[in-house]
């Protein structure tokens, strides 16, 4: 009897050990993270891709990098998100091109059990997102106001005409920066008059045309806030072509290598720089931790501060914040 019990016990233990062993030895399923960005032709997203690929490699996850080649547009982004979700990723990092237009796509992802991270821009209802990450656009706009005021030698009692070049009316980054710019102007520089805004639709030639028209419309123009890299490129070309470098303060956004060089030659008064690679790294880290361990990030709504790059910036900071190209 005792022998029989021992035999049965031994067999049970062996079976249990084998089962545990098989389970323990089974290769862990490799996670897939989909990353749907705004417009691949925008250097901001190229810099973001560098961070995303590096973090995917470090975390040992597969990365699906998708987005429209050139149009930052809700109409083209929605079907791209649908296609990506059809591949059943474990997580989705989304840069929504419109807060309302991408809400349904985000809801569809979370309903399907896909962990969601929102980066750079956001949607109206972020309840189901694991994490939201953005540069501090309001603060960036405020820093741009400071840079323009400093460049034009702002004095209380005087008035100064400035204009703002945007890409679209609904991109939340544009909206945030513009609001931050307006708020700082209202509170600290009431003599700065924001005379006009116009859209470039992500085309630097359109941004160039807008600035050329403003130079005629406002002969006393003192400053231009180019709210993103596309507008910055178009505005810089307009000032160079018209020989107005140094005569009109130009503050741009995004540290494209070519634009950083133009700080040194005086075309840009300052550039407000973000850290898109850091945003991508943080998003993938948060999603992997959530999917693997169910761990929520310690801070759900992360804001990464922007920095002002100007002629006084150190070479180390220029190297740190200049966007890195893919090749």
């Amino acid at each position: 009897m005792n022998k029989r019990i021992l035999k049965v016990g031994f067999a049970a233990l062996t079976a249990a050990a084998l089962t545990l062993g098989i389970t323990g030895c089974a290769p862990e399923k490799k996670l897939t993270i989909a990353f749907v960005m705004g417009a691949e032709s925008d250097p901001f997203f190229q810099a973001m891709k560098v961070g995303a690929e590096a973090e995917a490699l470090a975390q040992g996850v597969d990365l699906i990098w998708q987005g429209d080649p050139s149009a930052y547009d809700v109409a083209t982004q929605v079907p791209i998100v649908d296609n990506v979700l059809a591949q059943s990723p474990d997580g989705l990092v989304l840069i929504p091109t419109d807060p309302t237009g991408l809400q349904a796509s985000a809801d569809k992802a979370t309903a399907a059990g896909v962990a969601l991270a929102l980066v750079d821009t956001t949607i109206n209802d972020t309840t189901n997102a694991v994490i939201t990450i953005t540069g501090d656009n309001g603060d960036g706009g405020a820093k741009a106001a400071d840079a323009i005021a400093n460049a034009i030698g702002y004095t209380d009692g005087e008035t100064y005409e400035v204009v703002v070049g945007l890409t679209s009316a609904t991109a939340t980054t544009n909206v945030g920066r513009l609001e931050g710019f307006k708020a700082r102007v209202a509170s600290d520089y009431p003599g700065i008059l924001i005379k006009d805004v116009a859209y470039s639709a992500s085309n630097p030639q359109t941004a160039n045309s807008n600035v050329n028209n403003w130079l005629t419309k406002y002969p006393n123009l003192k400053g231009i806030f180019a709210i993103d890299g596309t507008n910055a490129s178009g505005a810089a070309a307009a000032l160079q072509a018209k020989g107005l470098v140094g005569k009109i303060a130009l503050v741009g956004y995004d540290a494209y290598p070519a634009n950083v060089e133009l700080i040194k030659s005086g075309v840009f008064t300052a550039l407000i720089a973000q850290d898109p690679a850091a945003e991508a790294r943080l998003a993938i880290q948060a999603l992997v931790a959530f999917i693997k361990n169910g761990t929520n990030p310690s801070v759900k709504d992360v804001v990464i501060p922007n920095v002002t790059l100007d002629a006084n910036t150190s070479d180390d900071d220029f190297a740190k914040y200049t966007y890195v190209a893919i090749n």
Binding site: A39, E40, S41, D42, S70, A71, A201, S202, N203, P204, Q205, N208, T230, S233, G234, A237, Q240, A241, A258
Partner: peptide, 17 residues
Amino acid sequence: YAYIRLGAGSPSNGSGM
């Protein structure tokens, strides 16, 4: 024409044209 206008070749030079 875009290159001469902007002094640069950019992947967004023809965006939406």
